[in-house]
Write a protein that binds this DNA or RNA. Structure first.
Length: 278
DNA sequence: AACTACTTCAACCGCCGTAAG
DNA sequence: CCTTACGGCGGTTGAAGTAGT
C-alpha cells in the first residue's frame, strides 16, 4: 500500500501555526466538530493538511489540555508507566489527563531519561549492602494525599519461604525479585519479596522502614508505591473488587534510589467498575 | 555585545492498523 | 481477498530560546 504524502499538494502551509489559524480551527471545531480531518481544512478555509490540523488540535488547542510544567507526581507516573509500557506514549498519556503523548515524549527525552540514568537500579545484579536510613526517601510519600485508593492491610509479616494465600487464584506476576498475587476474591494484592536474603539488603528492619500510607496519582491507575522488603509480605487492599480475573494484570516493578528500594505496584484491568473522577 | 553550544518543544514524516468499498 | 483512505502513533527534525564563554 502506497500513500501519497499528506501535504503533497502545493499551496498547503507548513510550519508553525499563527494565532489566526488557531482561531479558525478552534471556531470550526467548536461549531462543526472534527468528524473528518482530511476534509476539515478545506471546509474551515485553512491552507493546511488534515493531519496538521489534527495535530495542532490534539496537541495544543484542545480545551482540556493542561499547560505548564509537569509536577513531580506526573513525572514519577511517567517513569513508572514507561517502565511498564515502554515508548507507548499515547497509552501513558491516557493516564495523565490533560497531557498529550507528544508532550510526554518530549519530557521523557529532555528530562526524565537523564534523570533515570542516575536513578534506575542496575538490572539483574546483586546490590551491595546499603544503609538502613530510610527517613528521606521512598517515593514522595510526604507529598501523598489522604485519599489513597489503596490501603495497607498489614505489614512486616515475616515469612521464611514462598507462601501464597490459600485461596489465591492463578493470577500472579512476578519480577525477578518479587511475587505479586491477587487474593481474597481480588480484593487484595499480596506482594512478596523473595529470593534475596534479607540480611543482604536489610540487616535490620525497623518500623520506620515501612510507609504509613501509599501515594496516589492524579488518576485512578493504582500506581502506588509500596515498601516491601526481602522475605516480607505486604497485603494491600484494592480500591475495587468486581473485575474479572482474566482481565487483571498486576505488576510490581522495583525502584531504587541511593538510599532505598521500593516497589511500584500497577494494577491494570479493562474491566473496571466506576472510577473516581479527578 | 557577539558568538557558540546546548536545550526545548512544536510540528512534520512515515509507518501501521483498520474500516469501507 | 485486495485496494484505498483515514486516523493514530512513535521517531525525528529544526527553529527558537537559553546558557556559557
Amino acid at each position: 500500500m502506497v500513500r501519497a504524502p499528506c501535504c503533497e499538494k502545493m499551496g498547503l502551509k507548513k510550519g508553525p501555526w499563527i494565532p489566526e489559524e488557531d482561531q479558525i480551527l478552534i471556531s470550526f471545531i467548536q461549531t462543526n466538530g472534527h468528524g473528518n480531518w482530511r476534509a476539515l481544512p478545506k471546509q474551515a478555509g485553512l491552507l493546511r493538511c488534515g493531519k496538521s490540523c489534527r495535530l495542532r488540535w490534539t496537541n495544543y488547542l484542545r480545551p482540556d489540555i493542561k499547560r505548564g510544567n509537569f509536577t513531580k507526581e506526573e513525572e514519577e507516573t511517567i517513569i513508572q508507566l514507561h517502565e511498564m509500557l515502554g515508548n507507548r506514549w499515547s497509552a501513558i498519556a491516557a493516564k495523565l489527563p490533560g497531557r498529550t503523548d507528544n508532550e510526554i515524549k518530549n519530557v521523557w527525552h529532555t528530562h526524565l531519561k537523564k534523570k533515570l540514568k542516575d536513578y534506575k537500579p542496575p538490572q539483574n545484579s546483586k546490590r551491595h549492602s546499603k544503609s538502613k536510613n530510610h527517613d528521606s526517601k521512598g517515593p514522595t510519600t510526604s507529598e501523598s494525599s489522604n485519599n489513597s485508593d489503596l490501603t495497607i492491610i498489614n505489614t512486616q509479616k515475616h515469612i521464611d519461604s514462598p507462601v501464597l494465600a490459600p485461596n489465591s487464584p492463578q493470577i500472579s506476576s512476578s519480577t525477578e525479585m518479587s511475587t505479586v498475587t491477587l487474593v481474597d476474591d481480588h480484593q487484595m494484592v499480596v506482594i512478596k519479596q523473595e529470593v534475596m536474603e534479607s540480611s543482604e539488603y536489610f540487616p535490620e528492619i525497623d518500623e520506620s522502614f515501612w510507609t504509613d500510607e501509599l501515594t496516589t496519582d492524579n488518576n485512578w491507575s493504582s500506581t502506588d508505591h509500596v515498601m516491601v522488603a526481602a522475605n516480607q509480605e505486604l497485603q494491600v487492599q484494592l480500591p475495587f473488587s468486581s473485575f474479572k480475573e482474566e482481565n487483571v494484570d498486576i505488576l510490581a516493578t522495583k525502584m531504587e534510589d541511593d538510599m532505598d528500594f521500593w516497589y511500584n505496584v500497577f494494577i491494570k484491568t479493562d474491566d473496571l467498575p466506576e472510577l473516581p473522577e479527578f
